[in-house]
């Protein structure tokens, strides 16, 4: 479906020096600096996948997704969608993609939402029957008809994002790109958006590619994660595999009847306060059951629970590189 081959993007930055003197100097001779925003990225995405791009700010994930959707021209390398290079055949290839970019909108601010849809209908040459069917279908997921006659400038952010989602799906694209789609949204709007993504992925086999900072988005949506930092791919794989690889441990929380907490084999006590102690262990070395068995030989246990390494740990570790 999507092939990214040796993708690179460089920027040149003008360096500005502070102060009056610097301002004068900049007039005559601005210093220039080259920055590699994305360096040699290659991967393949199959039809029907939901892939999350994560990484810290300035890591290059937005740059990548913008190159994949034809907005930025790569410095070198290529993006193929259904085998066609998006840089070379932009007009044909973009018929297959839909785009929703977080805080910005493609809706006409001054007019009712329906007018923006109408324009897209003409731009993508969608015939009336398909258009009506798509609107009905998307309405059943998002409830768009109740705001279709409202001017966009009077909408809440959540309503506007709904409008943008529908706008991006009107031409039934095979791939949907979302850059920080949930940023700034309230809980119910986030929920609606995630539900929407899951539904269209299931119903239409739409491939979804998103960047996000939201752990909820990742946990609920992404089967596959691509972690980028400094423009380089850090991780690419199944969400649970990455969790297993980057954080191959669990933490066992044990409550005893008194304040004495014993050590146990194949694990490390990382915290101890009052009656409660925390034991961190590698999944390959032992199991929680063994540790509990071991501990209960030395002390009476009141209660236990297991903490899995979460996606936030993954990100923390990945960014720490």
């Amino acid at each position: 479906m999507i092939d990214v081959v040796n993708l690179c993007k460089d920027y040149t930055l003008k360096r500005k020096e502070p102060g009056l003197k610097g301002a004068f100097k900049g007039l005559v001779n601005p210093g220039i600096e080259k920055i590699h925003a994305v360096a040699d990225l290659s991967f393949h995405i199959d039809a029907g996948e939901i892939v999350g791009f994560i990484g810290p700010n300035g890591a290059g994930k937005s740059t990548t997704i913008k190159m994949m959707s034809g907005i930025l021209t790569p410095s070198s390398g290529s993006v193929l969608i259904n085998g066609a290079d998006i840089t070379k055949h932009r007009k044909e290839v973009v018929r297959n993609i839909g785009v929703v970019f977080g805080q910005r909108t493609q809706l006409n601010w001054d007019l009712r939402l329906g007018e923006s849809f109408e324009l897209l209908k003409h731009i993508y040459q969608i015939d009336q029957k398909d258009y009506d069917r798509t609107i009905d279908e998307l309405d059943s997921i998002l409830g768009i008809k109740e705001i279709i006659n409202q001017p966009v400038r009077q909408m809440s952010l959540g309503q506007r994002v709904k409008g943008d989602l529908v706008a991006s799906m009107l031409h039934s694209p095979k791939v949907l790109f979302l850059d920080e789609p949930t940023i700034g949204l309230d809980v119910s709007s986030k929920y609606a958006l995630r539900k929407f993504i899951k539904e269209i992925n299931k119903l239409r086999q739409t491939t979804v590619i998103l960047t996000t900072h939201d752990l909820g988005d990742i946990q609920e949506l992404c089967e596959r994660l691509i972690i980028i930092n400094h423009g380089v791919m850090m991780e690419d794989g199944n969400l649970s595999e990455i969790v297993d690889r980057i954080a191959p441990y669990k933490t066992l929380v044990v409550e005893f009847y008194d304040e004495k907490a014993p050590e146990a084999n194949f694990c490390e006590m990382i915290e101890h306060s009052g009656n409660i102690a925390k034991y961190k262990f590698m999944k390959k070395d032992t199991t929680a059951a063994d540790i509990i068995a071991d501990l209960s030989k030395r002390q009476t246990i009141k209660d236990v629970s297991i903490e899995e390494a979460g996606i936030d740990d993954i990100i923390k570790i990945a960014y720490g590189h």
Binding site: L20, A23, G26
Partner: peptide, 15 residues
């Protein structure tokens, strides 16, 4: 006034 001078001086093209 000083900040504005600096601001203006940085926009070479406008100048």
């Amino acid at each position: 006034i000083k900040t504005q001078i600096i601001k203006r001086l940085t926009y070479a093209f406008d100048v």
